[in-house]
C-alpha cells in the first residue's frame, strides 16, 4: 500500500522526526505506567524547546496544561509587590503547573527557564479525554499527581519549599 512508504508519511505521520519520543518514564508523574500504557500518553504530549531566560508561563495566566522537564532547568518565581521571590528550581524529571490538570485557576507563579531546556506539555482537555478512553492510565497519573501534591504540601508545611500553588 503506497501510504506505508516513509516519504508519504513525513508530513505529520508516524515518522515524526521533530518529536522523537523522549523516555517519559524518567518523569515521575508517568513512572508507574506500564510499557503498553506509555505509547497512549506519548501520543498526547507536545514537545517544546525553551532558551535560558525564556518565560514558560506567567503568574495570572489561565492554566491549561502541565509541564514536565525532559532536560534543563526551570525556576519558579513569584512577584510580591515589586520584589521577585524564587520559590524553587526544578530539574529534569520534575513537573510544574500541575494544578492546571485539576482546575482552571490562574497560575500562581511564573515559570522561567534558567538553562536551555526541553519540556513536554500535556493539556487538561487531553487528560479529561484520557479519563474517558483509558481510565486505568488516567487514574495512575491522577494517583501519582496526588502523591506529588501531598509531598509538596508536606514540604511546604516543613518550610522547605513554597511552590505548592502552581
Amino acid at each position: 500500500m503506497p501510504y506505508r512508504t516513509e516519504s508519504d508519511v513525513r508530513l505529520f505521520g508516524r515518522h515524526d522526526a521533530h518529536e522523537a519520543p523522549h523516555p517519559l518514564r524518567q518523569i515521575k508523574l508517568f513512572s508507574t505506567l506500564s510499557r503498553r500504557e506509555m505509547p497512549v500518553v506519548q501520543a498526547l504530549r507536545h514537545e517544546r524547546s525553551y532558551l535560558a531566560g525564556e518565560v514558560v508561563f506567567d503568574e495570572g495566566d489561565d492554566g491549561e496544561a502541565i509541564y514536565a522537564i525532559v532536560s534543563g532547568e526551570v525556576e519558579i518565581l513569584r512577584h510580591d509587590g515589586g520584589r521577585q521571590q524564587r520559590l524553587a528550581v526544578l530539574a529534569a524529571g520534575e513537573v510544574f503547573g500541575e494544578l492546571a490538570l485539576l482546575d482552571q485557576a490562574p497560575r500562581a507563579a511564573q515559570a522561567r527557564a534558567t538553562a536551555d531546556c526541553v519540556l513536554v506539555v500535556f493539556f487538561r482537555a487531553d487528560f479529561m479525554n484520557l479519563l474517558e478512553t483509558h481510565p486505568k492510565i488516567a487514574s495512575k497519573i491522577a494517583l501519582s499527581l496526588a502523591r506529588h501534591l501531598g509531598s509538596r504540601l508536606r514540604q511546604a508545611n516543613a518550610g522547605q519549599r513554597q511552590d505548592g500553588h502552581l
Binding site: L44, R48, F57, E64, A65, A125
Partner: peptide, 26 residues
Amino acid sequence: DGRRFQRFLARAVPNAYFERTLHLLY
C-alpha cells in the same frame, strides 16, 4: 491522524502563544 495533525499545527506556534493557541484548537 487528527491528533498528529493537531501536533503538527502546534509546532508552528511560538512558545509565548503556545498554551493559549492550543486551547483554541481544542
